[in-house]
């Protein structure tokens, strides 16, 4: 499937460094460029500490970038102010990983969902209440739930509340940061189905951050693979699964245990040695070189360019 249309979000040479003291710099996101098209789901995968959450947070201006820019509908997100900033804050929303920590335990569900409506002054009084009831219905809860507190709900229900809160301000773009990893398998399917339905109904654009590749493949149109702050491969989800080019993507795909005993017995795994190195003062050249089976001398010297090797298939690797 090809992705046509206009980009809703353009990320150009984005860098986000953190000073961690004693002159050390943690390069969480290092020179990343990508586009997110209107109405698509871009999956962002990688192991913990690879910078995927920092990336999502910088895109919706929860962090200021060290350099580079993020364009939303053609405007630089980090330069917005006044009315335009309010507008952006309404249009870009986030769903968090931990449904237990991301809801204020002292607010009723109705107030949690209504907070954004109040801040942006979208509805008042009776209309506001009706909108909250409507949103609860949309995410599969009912209006009696509006007066209850978060602790009265299960993990799956809380994640639904988080989704309703994000939807309350009629956003265009939602960053879903590991929205299902804290949930049970059967509940994961419910939440994913809900997110996909809403996307169709409301023409939403998603940045879907996760480490569960099988689920990401199912929900995403295109997938970007991150390793140590760098996007190493970007392709449509079909291409990425059928013909992964980067050795890291290949290893990552082969590491997922498949719920099929026959395949598991036959499968040859590409085992990676060791752990992901620290993003503080990361290695020169290709960051994956140390763990890569195909590493050549050039890999440790020069950082590979991120280039299009096939149509819509980008990879940063000296092999291509």
């Amino acid at each position: 499937m090809t992705v046509a249309g206009i980009p809703l979000i353009e990320v150009n040479n984005l860098k986000k460094y953190f000073n961690v003291g004693r002159g050390a710099v943690l390069k969480a996101v290092d020179n990343v460029s990508l586009h997110i098209m209107e109405g698509e789901t871009l999956g962002l995968v990688g192991e913990s500490g690879c910078g995927k959450t920092t990336m999502g947070r910088t895109i919706i201006r929860l962090y200021e970038p060290t350099s580079g820019q993020v364009l939303f509908e053609g405007k630089n997100v980090h330069k917005l102010d006044g009315q335009q900033l309010r507008e952006f804050n309404r249009k870009a929303q986030m769903i968090f990983q931990d449904p237990y920590a991301s809801l204020n335990p002292r607010m009723t569900v109705g107030d949690i969902i209504g907070e954004g409506i109040d801040i942006h002054g979208i509805y008042k009084n009776k209309e506001r209440t009706d909108r909250i009831y409507e949103l609860l219905g949309v995410v599969g809860l009912n209006k009696e739930h509006a007066n209850r507190f978060p602790h009265e709900f299960s993990g799956g229900q809380r994640q639904r509340i988080g989704i309703a809160r994000a939807l309350a301000v009629e956003p265009k773009f939602i960053v879903c940061d590991e929205p299902i990893s804290a949930l049970d398998v059967s509940i994961q399917a419910q939440v994913i189905n809900l997110l996909m339905e809403l996307q169709q109904k409301l023409k939403l654009t998603y940045l879907f951050i996760a480490h569960d590749l099988s689920m990401v493949k199912y929900v995403s149109d295109r997938i970007a693979v991150m390793y140590l702050g760098v996007v190493v491969e970007l392709a449509t989800s079909e291409d990425l699964h059928n013909r992964p080019l980067h050795p890291y993507t290949q290893a990552l795909l082969s590491a997922i245990p498949v719920p099929d005993p026959e395949t598991e017995r036959k499968k040859k795994r590409i085992l990676l040695e060791g752990d992901v190195p620290s993003p503080i003062n990361p290695p020169e050249g290709c960051r994956f070189a140390k763990r890569c089976r195909y590493a050549k001398p050039v890999c440790t010297e020069q950082q590979p360019e991120f280039k299009e090797v096939e149509k819509n298939h980008f990879v940063a690797c000296h092999l291509y």
Partner: peptide, 24 residues
Amino acid sequence: WGLLMSVPTSELDKSKRLASIDGT
């Protein structure tokens, strides 16, 4: 059946819904 079906397999594409076990 419900448990096995709620996991996406490689053949499953976006046009189909995941099977989920409703209720708690």
